[in-house]
Design a protein around this nucleic acid. Structure first.
Lengths: 344, 344
DNA sequence: CTGAAAGCGCTTACAG
DNA sequence: CTGAAAGCGCTTACAG
C-alpha cells in the first residue's frame, strides 16, 4: 500500500541501502544522488515505517511513562498533567514519542512495564512517583533498563538510580517554621498515603521544625488520606473534632487544600482568621482558591522536563553515572496564613 | 540478548512457526506441544518482541491520542486528564496501548499525525477536540485512517466521521432557561475561543434560550477568551465594567468559573447574591469551589471510554458505518444560582 | 560513493 | 498437527 524504501530505490535507480542512507543523511552519499532520492521520496509520498526501523535499529525513539494506578488516582491530581507537560516538551524537542501506562493495579502496571522492556516498546522509562515497597523500580534496576525517577528512592538504591526531586523535607520544614514564627503552636499535618516518599519527607520536615523548638509531636494532629479530594475534607473533620484544635495546618497537596478550604467554609471556620494553611505544589488552579492559598511552588513542569533530559541522556550514554537533580522550590505567600494572637 | 522465538523453538524442539502459533494460541497445535513450548518460554523468560510482531502483523495495538497543542493549553484543563482516564480504562481492557501527541503548533501536530499514520505507529487515532478549520481531521478522512472524534465535526463531514459528543447546544439552552426562570434577564456568556465547536454550541444554546423569550442578544454580554485561567478573570473585568451589568453568567468551562469566582470575590461581588453562575463540565475539583458551583456534568470519563470503544470497533471492522454517540449530560445544582429580585 | 546480502524477530500462506 | 520458506520494511557491516 504505502510506498516503501524499495519503491523509492527503484524510482531513483539506486539500491535500497542507498535510500536508507539518504534517510539517515549519511555523509557517504553524494549530494547528487541524495537529491535524486529525495525527489523520488516526495514523488511517492514516502514515509519510513516505524516498526521496521525500530526492529532493525533496536531503538524506538519513545519513552514510557509510568503513573501510579493511572486512571483512579493519578489523573485526579493536576500534578500529573503538569509533569507530563514538561516531559512532552522535552520529548518533542528531542524527537521522542510518549507511551502511557494504562494499568490500574500495581501488578498490572508491572506487567505493562515488563512488556515495554522485554518487548522493546520503549527506549527508556519515566517513573512519575516514588513509593516504598514498590516493585517497578527494583525490576528496572535489576534489568539495567534506562529509567529516571521523579521523586527520590527510599533509602536503598540511592546510588543506583537517577532521580529528579524537590527538597521536600526542607520545604516542609520551612513552611512549618513560618507558621511557628507567626505564633502558631498547635499545627496539624494533612498528608497523602505514607507509602509515598514525598509524604514521608513532608512529615519529617514538619516534625523536625516542631522538634527544633521543643514542641512535642502530637499524633492526633497528623492525619493521612490517599484520596486528594475527599481526603482533605475527611481530614478536617477529624482535626476539628479534637478538643484542642490546631490553629494552623500543613497540607501535603493543593487539591487536598481545596477540600480543606471547602469543608472549613461549610463549618464557618474563617481562613486565615481562625485557621492558617500552607500547602504544596502550586498547581495551575491553586491561585484560584478562596482565599488564594499560600503554597510551595515545586516547579512541576521542570521536574518533568529535567527528568526527560536525564532519561534521554541515559539512553544515549548508558554507562554514564547516575545523577541526582534537585529542582528548587519557592514558597508563594498568598492569603491563607495569619499571625496567631495569644488567646488561651 | 533477550530470548527470541528461535531460542524457544530450539529448547522445545519445534519450529519457530510452532512457537508463534502457541503464542497466538492457535487451535491447530496439540495441547502437548503447547505445554512443552510454554515451559520453554517460561524457562527462558521469553517475551515477544513488539516491533517484530507489529511489522509482521501490520498492527500495533496502540492508539494515538491527539490533543490541541498539547503542553500549553490542553493539560491546563482537567478535562483532558479526565477524558484520558476513560480512554485509558477502555484501552487497557482491550489490550491497547496509548501513544501521546507532543507537538505544540497545529503544523507540528499534523506532522506527528502523518508520522503515526504513514509510519504505522498506531492502529487508530482519538481526536480530543473539535475545531473549525482544523487540518487534522480532513487529513484523516482523506487517508481513510480509523479515528474517532470527541466533540462533533463542524457542518461538513458530519456523515463521514464517527464522533462522541454531548448535546452542548441543549445543555446551554437549558441552563440559560434555568437562569431565566430564576428571574434573570441580563445574562452574560463567557466562552472559550470561537474556533472550538463546543464554544459555538454553547453560545448558540444560550442565544436560543434568550431569543425564545424575546430577550435581545447583547454583543457586549458575550466574551471569549482562550486561556481558561486568565480568561475567566479577564472576562469578568470586561463584564463588570459595563454600565448595565449582567446579573447572571453562563460560563463555558469550570476552570474559567474558578477564575470568575476568584475575581468576583476580589471585587466584593457576592455569588450568588449579586451574581448567579452556571458552568460546564463538572470536573473533579468543581465541587470544591467557593461557593460550590452549579454546573453541567458532561460525563467526561464516559466520553473517553465510549470514544475508545468506537475506535477499537472501527479498527476491527473498518467498513462498518460511522456512529454518532451522544453522552447524556446532567445539570448539577449547587450554590451559585439565586432568584433575581426585581430591583430596577 | 554505492550495492548485494544478511539480519532484526516475528507471522502466515503453503505443503505435507 | 507441524515445518520450511518467504515476507513485513528497514539497517548495516562487508566488499568493491
Amino acid at each position: 500500500m504505502a510506498a516503501t524504501i524499495k519503491d523509492v530505490a527503484k524510482m531513483a535507480n539506486v539500491a535500497p541501502s542507498t535510500v536508507s542512507r539518504v534517510i539517515a543523511n549519511s555523509s557517504r552519499i553524494s549530494e547528487k544522488t541524495k537529491e535524486r532520492v529525495r525527489e523520488a521520496m516526495n514523488e511517492l509520498g514516502y514515509h519510513p515505517n516505524f516498526n521496521a526501523r525500530s526492529l532493525a535499529n533496536k531503538s524506538t525513539k519513545t519513552i514510557g511513562i509510568i503513573m501510579p494506578n493511572s486512571a483512579k488516582i493519578a489523573f485526579q491530581n493536576p500534578f500529573f498533567p503538569e509533569v507530563i507537560r514538561g516531559i512532552s516538551m522535552k520529548a518533542y524537542q528531542e524527537g521522542y514519542g510518549l507511551y502511557l501506562s494504562t494499568g490500574q493495579t500495581e501488578d498490572e502496571i508491572l506487567q505493562e512495564v515488563k512488556n515495554m522492556v522485554y518487548g522493546g516498546r520503549v527506549d527508556g522509562i519515566l517513573l512519575l512517583y516514588s513509593r516504598i515497597n514498590d516493585k517497578i523500580m527494583p525490576f528496572l534496576i535489576e534489568e539495567g533498563f534506562p529509567f529516571v525517577l521523579i521523586g527520590r528512592p527510599y533509602k536503598i538504591d540511592e546510588d543506583r538510580v537517577t532521580f529528579v526531586n524537590n527538597d521536600n523535607f526542607k520545604a516542609a520544614k520551612t513552611v512549618t517554621e513560618y507558621l511557628l514564627l507567626l505564633g502558631h503552636e498547635r499545627i496539624g499535618f494533612i498528608g497523602g498515603h505514607l507509602d509515598y516518599v514525598v509524604t514521608i519527607d513532608h512529615m519529617k520536615g514538619y516534625e523536625q521544625a516542631l522538634t527544633n523548638v521543643n514542641i512535642p509531636i502530637r499524633e492526633e494532629f497528623i492525619v493521612h488520606h490517599e484520596e486528594v479530594k475527599e481526603g482533605g475534607q475527611n481530614a478536617i473533620i477529624e482535626l476539628m473534632s479534637l478538643v484542642n484544635r490546631p490553629t494552623a495546618l500543613v497540607v501535603s497537596d493543593d487539591i487536598m487544600t481545596f477540600g480543606v478550604l471547602r469543608m472549613l467554609a461549610d463549618m464557618g471556620v474563617q481562613v486565615p482568621h481562625d485557621m492558617s494553611i500552607v500547602s504544596f505544589n502550586n498547581v495551575m488552579i491553586s491561585e484560584l482558591s478562596s482565599p488564594p492559598m499560600s503554597t510551595v511552588d515545586i516547579h512541576i513542569y521542570d521536574l518533568g522536563f529535567e527528568a526527560t533530559d536525564c532519561l534521554i541522556n541515559k539512553i544515549h550514554h548508558p554507562t554514564s553515572g547516575e545523577r541526582k537533580i534537585i529542582i528548587p522550590h519557592r514558597f508563594i505567600k498568598r492569603q491563607t496564613c495569619n499571625k496567631q494572637e495569644e488567646r488561651v
